[in-house]
């Protein structure tokens, strides 16, 4: 069972869930980020993700460590795909297990929000008229 993974293969949601399943948990919360077909009304043809893999894995583990300090959770797992993705593909799957459900919702939201801010992964959107690296915080 791998809690933190970057892969060019299609993501398997069940693998991420299985990584956090526990007899101590009363809830498993799962977030799936998928490739949308448009940005600001412009049709997206495909996405390409690039990553700085050793740092990305380290940052994912750090986020999980922060979550465990802040909330009463049992396990956290994050799998992110990179390379070429098509519309509808899963780009990221995050699962959090916890004794009680409210914690799993809050911790899962923190995990995806923080991943988007600090984990070195980059997304390039391909439109009919060209490619653009997405820069949300530029």
């Amino acid at each position: 069972m791998t809690n933190f993974k970057l892969t060019t293969d299609p993501l398997n949601v069940q693998d991420v869930i299985d990584a956090v399943r526990s007899p101590k948990a009363g809830a498993v919360n799962v977030f799936i980020g998928t490739v949308r077909d448009a940005t600001d009304g412009k049709a997206v043809e495909r996405l390409e993700y690039e990553t700085y893999e050793p740092m990305a894995l380290k940052k994912m583990e750090e986020i999980a460590g922060e979550i465990k300090q802040r909330w009463d959770v049992v396990e956290i797992a994050m799998h992110h795909r990179y390379g070429l993705l098509a519309i509808g593909d899963s780009a990221v799957v995050i699962a959090v297990s916890s004794p009680h459900r409210q914690t799993s919702f809050e911790a899962c939201q923190y995990a995806i929000d923080t991943l988007k801010q600090v984990v070195p992964i980059w997304k390039k959107e391909s439109f009919e008229d060209g490619d653009v690296w997405v820069m949300p915080h530029a």
Binding site: H80, V118, I121, M135
Partner: peptide, 10 residues
Amino acid sequence: LAIIPPVSGG
């Protein structure tokens, strides 16, 4: 030393 442009994962 890695140059890290604004990240956009997820």
